[in-house]
């Protein structure tokens, strides 16, 4: 039976009708049109679907829409506000850390979350934050570099 839920996504309020078996990822993508988060595996292994629930990063393929009624959700689309991209997005461009782009939104969300928890993350913190994010293109070299480089932007 469909249920009405309220979500605040990237600062906008939505009231929508969802099936109980729709994951948060599906609700965001198919109902609300936030297609930034991607489904790569559907079981929490790849990290491409990472979003924030009340500022905590989670894998949205493992959460039901109905479970988070009333929550505040942030997707990759919400990281760039007022035409300004976030520090980590800038750093990804600087370091050439984007290739096919499918894992990118999840990577960016995870690193951005790291910077809200740790002001000066080291290489190990970065790798810990990304240990459940798979990338098949880059060999992760530029992603680690971008995560380090982002420091410059978050300090300001």
């Amino acid at each position: 039976m469909k249920k009405i839920i309220k979500l605040r996504v990237n600062g906008e309020d939505y009231e929508i009708l969802v099936e109980p078996y729709w994951t948060l990822l599906k609700v965001l993508r198919d109902v609300l049109g936030f297609t930034g988060p991607k489904e790569g595996c559907g079981i929490g292994e790849c990290g491409a679907c990472t979003v924030y629930i009340d500022d905590k990063p989670v894998k949205s393929c493992l959460v039901l829409g109905v479970e988070v009624n009333g929550a505040n959700i942030t997707t990759i689309e919400g990281l760039s506000q007022n035409k300004k991209i976030s520090g980590i997005q800038k750093a990804f461009i600087d370091e050439g850390a984007v290739q096919c782009g499918f894992c990118t939104p999840g990577m960016v969300m995870a690193i951005n979350a790291l910077y809200t928890n740790v002001s000066d993350p080291g290489e190990d913190d970065i790798k810990e934050a990304l240990k459940g994010h798979l990338c098949r293109c880059t060999g992760y070299e530029t992603i680690v570099k971008a995560a380090k480089r982002a420091k410059e932007y978050y300090k300001r």
Partner: peptide, 21 residues
């Protein structure tokens, strides 16, 4: 010369097949 597709892939705007409804 920076990638021409980087920004759209970083903001979630870039389109992939699964995004099409």
């Amino acid at each position: 010369f920076k990638r021409v597709d980087a920004l759209s892939k970083l903001t979630g705007r870039a389109r992939f097949l699964a995004d099409i409804i």
